[in-house]
């Protein structure tokens, strides 16, 4: 017999982790191709709002997810255009993508603040009050299982398929890859849009299930935590998932601390995930001694004729 509180904690952990993980996995794919996209926060936000708006207007949940994912992907293509095609600074472009994404989603979502969803993303089974671990695991939201499939798929893709090896080659050494006849720009463009699509999925999960409503800036830094997770995971899908579970656990645990008898100001509680992210990054960097596993060409614009 398991403590009901523990079940709740586990449940919340998995939900929070799913949200972070999908966005992080998308960024991982983008970064593997050598493109740094700091716009995750903005992309999640765009996916969240467009998905929510579609869900309200059409009451078709599948269509809403599709719109959210696609619009984030299109939004990410701005970054791809500016950095891959036009070879401009990736840091600047990504930051502005975040700023633009937050502003755009606030603009779009202005009339949707406080609106109630009719349909939500549901869990796959009808167990509403799971009482053991198995039941928790089989009663998750459909996106949770999608995330698992994406994790396995991405890992397989990167390690075992020619496509994945080429993607990684481009991010490691774009010059050598180019001279081998690989399509550097095309690969990076696609990887950036795929990263956007993943962020979009994370966004629709946020507004269509995790908190089901829309307010301004509701991503509240999750995009940045996802970026940190990529570093945490050493650019490896499974380790990134592990990191997501750790962070999800913290996000779920902290508000519950009071029930375990800790007296903490709710305001201080709110900042702990950010503090812990910094701490984890520091510990990790010290532990790895500079060998982070980052793709070598990340952030470096590619032009064939450059020396």
């Amino acid at each position: 017999m398991i403590d009901i509180q523990l079940i709740g904690l586990l449940n919340a952990t998995l939900q929070a982790a799913t949200l972070l993980f999908i966005a992080a996995l998308g960024e991982l794919i983008t970064e593997k191709s050598g493109i740094l996209n700091l716009g995750v926060e903005g992309m999640i936000s765009v996916g969240a709002v467009t998905g929510f708006m579609t869900a309200i207007n059409t009451e078709n949940i599948f269509f809403a997810v599709l719109v959210g994912v696609l619009s984030s992907s299109v939004f990410a293509s701005i970054h791809a255009l500016v950095t891959v095609v036009l070879k401009q600074d990736q840091t600047v472009s990504g930051l502005i993508l975040t700023i633009l994404g937050l502003a755009l989603s606030s603009l779009l979502g202005k009339n949707y603040v406080g609106r109630k969803l009719v349909t939500k993303l549901e869990s796959v089974t009808s167990i509403t009050e799971p009482s053991n671990i198995i039941e928790v695991l089989i009663s998750q939201n459909i996106i949770f299982y999608v995330a698992i499939v994406l994790m396995i798929g991405t890992s397989f893709l990167l390690k075992r398929t020619m496509f994945g090896r080429r993607l990684e080659a481009v991010g490691e050494d774009s010059k050598s890859s180019d001279s081998m006849g690989l399509k550097v720009a095309k690969t990076q463009f696609i990887a950036t849009c795929v990263g956007g699509a993943f962020a979009g999925l994370s966004g629709v999960y946020l507004t269509l299930s995790y908190v089901p409503y829309w307010t301004d800036n509701m991503t509240s830094g999750r995009g940045w935590i996802a970026l940190a997770l990529v570093i945490f995971g050493g650019w490896k899908p499974y380790r990134t998932a592990l990191g997501a579970i750790l962070f999800g656990f913290l996000e779920a645990l902290v508000p519950r601390l009071q029930t375990y008898g800790f007296e903490l100001s709710p305001y201080i509680v709110k900042i702990t995930p950010y503090v812990i992210t910094i701490l984890v990054l520091v510990i990790l960097t010290i532990y790895k001694g500079g060998k982070t596993g980052a793709p070598k060409n990340i952030g470096v614009p590619f032009f064939r004729e450059n020396r």
Partner: peptide, 18 residues
């Protein structure tokens, strides 16, 4: 050198579509 340092010899020889 135009070799991908962190990849194996096999990868470097076979990545090209040709």
């Amino acid at each position: 050198f135009r070799l991908i340092e962190s990849f194996s010899i096999k990868d470097n020889l076979t990545l090209s579509k040709a």
